[in-house]
């Protein structure tokens, strides 16, 4: 028996095999795209490995966290980065204390009061400009204002001010986005109960968005703590501990790294990498805290 013409399909089947050319292209794309990811991860792993390998042993000593480099020359071992750690934390803290209230109020104005007003457009424009300002230019801004115009000395406080310029746009943006997604029903329900607008904002709108806002703030703080350009321009380095942010030189981890970098011997090198590990540790801890706090403050959905 032979197959007759009657059994042959009149038209070709709808589902054709994918031609080898298309399959090859698809394959190539998949490989390239995955390779791109690997290429990005490689320097991250390499960098973290380098930093940990060269600096981790330093951080394990108690002296590192409790002593400054007071009285030590570049050739003497010992001492610690206590003065620099203090500087980094204090400058970041002062910056946050100034920037956060302003930024949150600005975001509240943009979302709750000023929608589409002329002032709101100007503010959005300014925040846009600020978010693109390089840190070195922000430092020059404050230098022009604080040191040359007002005649005040360089200080840790001036550094904090320039960090404020870098932090405000980040926090405004995050807060604005989060306030926008708070459902209007919540506001309306509150108004319907006769609650004034400001109280609605303070007690209903902001708490709903709070967990995200806190995460945003913490991430912004972690970011400004690693900024080097402002500390280079606005404060001098010292090996001693200085608790006063308004006067005198104050070290911070980036500044510590930048000046120890110039001590070209093994001791200086070890200190640089030790400070790098410390900085990464501080940033990691802040990031983890951000996650924990945002979990704790998240609005219960049930």
């Amino acid at each position: 028996m032979t197959t007759t013409d009657l059994q042959r399909p009149a038209t070709a089947p709808a589902f054709q095999h994918i031609s080898s050319g298309r399959r090859a292209k698809n394959m190539t794309a998949t490989v390239l795209v995955s390779a791109a990811f690997v290429i990005a991860v490689a320097p991250l792993v390499w960098l973290l490995w380098t930093v940990l390998e060269k600096g981790f042993t330093h951080v394990l000593t108690a002296d590192w966290w409790q002593k400054s480099l007071a009285g030590l020359t570049g050739r003497q071992e010992g001492g610690g980065a206590y003065h620099a750690i203090y500087g980094t934390l204090v400058q970041g803290l002062i910056c946050a204390v100034i920037a956060v209230p302003i930024a949150i109020m600005v975001a509240i104005y943009l979302v709750e009061y000023g929608r589409d007003s002329k002032l709101a457009k100007w503010i959005t424009f300014t925040v846009d400009i600020l978010s693109g300002v390089p840190s070195i230019v922000a430092a020059l801004f404050i230098y022009a204002l604080w040191v040359t115009t007002l005649g005040l000395p360089r200080s840790a406080f001036a550094v904090s001010l320039s960090l404020v310029l870098l932090m405000i746009p980040v926090v405004v943006r995050t807060t604005e986005e989060l306030l926008k997604i708070v459902p209007d029903e919540l506001r309306e329900a509150s108004y319907a109960l006769g609650i004034p607008k400001w109280k609605t904002i303070v007690k209903i709108v902001v708490p709903t968005a709070l967990s995200g806002i806190i995460t945003g703030i913490m991430l912004a703080v972690a970011r400004v703590m690693g900024e080097t350009a402002p500390v280079l321009i606005l404060v001098g380095y010292t090996q001693f501990i200085n608790y006063d942010p308004f006067g005198g030189n104050m070290a911070s981890l980036p500044l510590f790294m930048n000046s120890e970098r110039l001590t070209t011997n093994e001791i200086g090198e070890a200190r640089v990498w030790g400070a790098a590990v410390t900085l990464i540790l501080i940033i990691t801890v802040i990031n983890l805290l951000a996650t924990v706090i945002s979990r704790l403050t998240a609005v219960k959905t049930k």
Binding site: P101, M105, W122, A144, I168, P196
Partner: peptide, 27 residues
């Protein structure tokens, strides 16, 4: 309360606009 709060929000906004303009002038 409303007047104070919206005033605060508005002045925070005005503050940063004026601040940036002033800094530009100083520079």
């Amino acid at each position: 309360g409303d007047r104070i709060f919206s005033g605060l929000a508005k002045s925070a906004g005005i503050l940063i606009v004026v601040m940036i303009a002033a800094i530009g002038v100083f520079l």
